[in-house]
Design a protein around this nucleic acid. Structure first.
Lengths: 349, 349
DNA sequence: TTGTAGGCGTTATCAT
DNA sequence: ATGATAACGCCTACAA
């Protein structure tokens, strides 16, 4: 059995509580005994039992992570590891651990969350996604358990601490960029409409069209899996339209890659024949041929700020609700050009 | 405060121990009281406090994950999320949780591991890498703490349960494949020689050359960061040699992508002028242009089997040391062709 | 400044 | 079959 506080106490000839105080750096303790205890601590190689500690102080100093249910898919997207890195860096800064539960079905995940939360395994939870009508979110609220969501909550935006990009604006900007290049037939390819991020991006896209007086055509709106395959599927359908689009707003780099490759196979040239613009600026974006024009969303910060905020909530019981918007930025690379039928000069870069 | 076993006991008019037994499905308990207790359980919405439980049974049912120190880099590689998925699926099957600690420096990680292990936060640990002279591995052994490594241990191969590919053989096969295409000037581009996986792959490469009577040229051996940038760097140096290689064995898809792109920029054609073969068969491989010929290493299984084995160790104290080799397979795509100066016909696919 | 004792929520060992 | 009671290892009033 590992060395406990009692062993140390015995060796140092003090009571366990004294040892505990030394460890906690309690001010009212004499320098002398502090030294003695510290020596004993070293000598025995004491390490506190975090489980016992957690039980006593009713706090585990660990954060629970909830992944979206479409696990297999999410894990493919480079977006995910990057948030994770942000999360873990933020957690590590404050000596917090990270606890993951996973599950294949929505049910399994829900059960996992209950275990974490009700089981006292974690002090707070971070939702790595935001979707419409999420029972997990409801559960957390009903139990007034501390949590923050990465993404924009579908409802009660003002009541839920979250960290997100302004996806509406980003999408609008991107669409405007395409419009500025003379495109009129602009398609939107995104994921499921249950994901709030998709909704926001669609909305931004539509709003840009509207303001520019470009007719909205719902044949140009595609919702597919957030994979290369999804992108491929969308292209196939879109390019068989009577009036195929000349530009694509794609909600994710991974999908965009599928779009690019499929267009390629159809002998459609990018950016000469068709423009593609996408989101997230993952590694894939710079590596694709041609390199993707995409929106940098600072994925790392999304995660980093999420842990930071959660830890603040945990440390200060009445921390106000916060809404943290991480800035975005259009990264122009090689997949966008002037519309063929326009008079605008093709962009360089 | 949450509802405890005592609350349930009170409601059911039994002792806490009885409730505990009902929960544990203890056989010697009357059907009648079992029902009563179960009703109380439901009524109060009881969920066991895992922390208290862990303290009592001296086991947390969670597994600690140790990432390689070059965190930023690792998280970029699609390899990582895939193992993670395997790990988490394996863990979930047996109701185990996953606990991650991270850190930027080797020191930080070491400290994190001590916390997990000595702090009793986890029952066992999985090392997601294998490197030469790893203090963490030593620490684990010294404390005879259950662990398994993903990869081949540098020493004591017979004493450490691990799950790995036969990287030596895979690399040899791959090199032979290139030799079979008529290549003689074959370069090897890999990561750090501290990583055992690199060592194994270099060894396999050398062995193939030797057996084929192809001269080994140590100018053809490059060690770079395991990133696209690393691949790029390697190409630059290699292609400026007096006799540049006509083929590349690249130890990772990510690097290989860098290789491909750089070659591309140099107007060197693939596979016509130069062949490239790589490892891991991540998503990147199928998406690159041309698609990468690479080795499928079944990354998911690496993770899945790792948790499986660890959990077996935990459940059966004298489970034998195991060495699990996950099969690999060459996936021929579009980056390899016959050497220009040979008489061999260019391969299709 | 230090020690004593009780509690955190379970499980497990005794009795009964 | 069930109920006390004592761990598990730590923290924290309260007392001294």
């Amino acid at each position: 059995m590992a060395v406990t506080i009692k062993d140390v106490a015995k060796l140092a000839n003090v009571s366990p509580s004294t040892v505990s105080r030394v460890i906690a750096n309690n001010p009212r303790i004499s320098e002398k005994t502090k030294e003695i205890v510290n020596k004993a601590l070293k000598e025995l190689g004491y390490h506190p039992n975090m489980i016992a500690r957690s039980l006593a102080i009713q706090s585990t100093e660990t954060i629970g992570l909830v992944m979206p249910s479409s696990n297999g898919i999410v894990f493919q997207n480079p977006f995910f590891p990057t948030v994770l890195r942000g999360l873990s860096e933020g957690a590590h800064d404050r000596q917090f651990g990270l606890h993951m539960t996973t599950g294949k079905t929505e049910e399994e995940i829900y059960e996992g969350v209950r275990q974490m939360v009700h089981g006292g395994r974690v002090d707070g939870v971070i939702l790595l996604y935001s979707k419409v009508d999420d029972p997990i979110l409801t559960y957390l609220q009903d139990n007034s358990f501390p949590f923050v969501v990465i993404g924009k909550p579908f409802t009660q935006v003002e009541q839920i601490t979250h960290v997100d990009n302004d996806n509406y604006r980003a999408s609008k900007e991107v669409t405007n960029y395409l419009i500025g290049l003379g495109h009129k037939r602009i398609a939107f390819v995104g994921g499921d409409l249950n994901q709030v991020v998709t909704i926001e991006r669609v909305l931004g896209y539509e709003s840009a069209l509207r303001e520019a007086g470009v007719e909205f055509n719902d044949e140009y709106l595609m919702h597919e899996d957030c994979t290369t395959e999804g992108g491929r599927q969308a292209v196939k359908e879109l390019m068989h339209l009577a009036h195929p689009p000349t530009a694509f707003v794609v909600a994710d780099d991974l999908m965009a890659l599928g779009v690019l490759n499929t267009l390629n196979e159809m002998n459609i040239r990018i950016p000469d024949d068709v423009s593609v613009i996408s989101f997230n600026n993952t590694l894939l974006a710079e590596m694709s041929r041609p390199p993707l024009t995409t929106v940098e969303i600072n994925t790392f910060d999304l995660g980093f700020q999420a842990t930071k905020s959660l830890i603040q909530m945990l440390e200060n019981k009445n921390e106000p609700i916060k809404r943290i918007i991480i800035p975005h930025k259009l990264i122009v690379r090689g997949t966008c050009g002037a519309a063929k039928d326009s008079n605008i000069v093709k962009t360089g870069d």
